[in-house]
């Protein structure tokens, strides 16, 4: 009884700040300027299908690359002495204290022609600009979201019972078998939440492509931003479609991870 009472503020919070806005987006998406029911806005969202697909593709690629980088990193860090672990995790987190835009801006300066990377590569005769393309956008996204992949995996790995590793070793497993049969399966929940935490925000991100991409790199988040300037209905319709895509993704992840993914 008591716990029910305690949950009331959270329920009200969710109602006011999650459910009502969601309903408002849906209502806006399905109405026209006069407030009548209309599918026009939804139809106007269709020309942006390829931007949708490109955004999802960029998000997917960033997520996979984040995983490839973060997983071994998390494993190595979890094997260190505890005091070293704290320092390393701290160092990984410090950039996050800085404003997101500043960090993206720093990448623009790093990658532009005449920037540090260009200067370095010019020494061996390669000259050019490395910004204003899709690869630069992905680099920016990986940098932005890497901690969100690293942290859940690292936390899960830290919790793996050392006894299980020892038991496997006692039963004759070599290093790679210990990893394959003990550590990897037990770290799956971390991977799942890491993927969710990277994919969802990167699919809907904006500004990153505006700063690091070229004229062809516009993401669905930027389109929503732009459309909301003059037309709330089409903006809401695109947002709604994006939400449905993300929902489908989360449901799939949930299936895949035996209810361990966070939704």
């Amino acid at each position: 009884m008591k716990s029910k009472l305690l949950s009331v503020p959270y329920l009200i919070w969710m109602l006011v700040f999650t459910m009502i806005p969601l309903v408002m987006i849906a209502v806006t998406a399905f109405s026209d300027n006069n407030g009548h029911f209309s599918l026009e806005a939804l139809a106007s969202a269709f020309p942006y299908t390829h931007v949708f697909l490109k955004s999802l593709w960029i998000a997917l690629l960033s997520t996979v690359l984040c995983l490839v980088i973060a997983y071994p990193m998390a494993y190595m860090v979890s094997q260190m002495r505890e005091s070293t672990q704290n320092v390393v995790v701290m160092l990984l987190m410090i950039p996050m204290w800085m404003n997101f835009l500043l960090r993206i801006y720093a990448w623009v300066l790093l990658l532009q022609s005449g920037g540090p990377l260009d200067t370095l590569l010019s020494a061996i005769g390669i000259h050019g600009s490395y910004t204003n393309n899709t690869a630069a956008v992905i680099v920016g996204m990986i940098y932005e979201y890497l901690p969100f992949m690293f942290l859940p995996i690292y936390t899960v790995m830290g919790k793996i019972d050392k006894g299980l590793v020892e038991a496997a070793q006692d039963l004759g497993s070599n290093k790679s078998e210990v990893f394959r049969k003990v550590i990897f399966p037990l770290s799956i929940p971390g991977i799942i939440s890491g993927i969710t935490m990277v994919f969802v925000p990167s699919a809907s991100t904006f500004v990153v492509a505006q700063y690091l991409g070229g004229t062809d790199d516009i993401m669905i988040g930027d389109i929503i931003d732009r459309i909301f300037f003059t037309n709330n209905h089409v903006g809401a319709a695109i947002s709604l479609i994006l939400m449905i895509f993300i929902l489908i993704f989360l449901v799939l992840m949930n299936r895949f991870g035996d209810e361990e993914a966070i939704v």
């Binding site: 516009i218 732009r226 300037f229 003059t230 037309n231």
Partner: peptide, 17 residues
């Protein structure tokens, strides 16, 4: 005209998209 501006904005987004 707001309607014309809306059309302008939509066309410009389309060019970029």
């Amino acid at each position: 005209d707001p309607e014309l501006y809306e059309y302008m904005q939509e066309q410009f987004v389309n060019i970029q998209a």
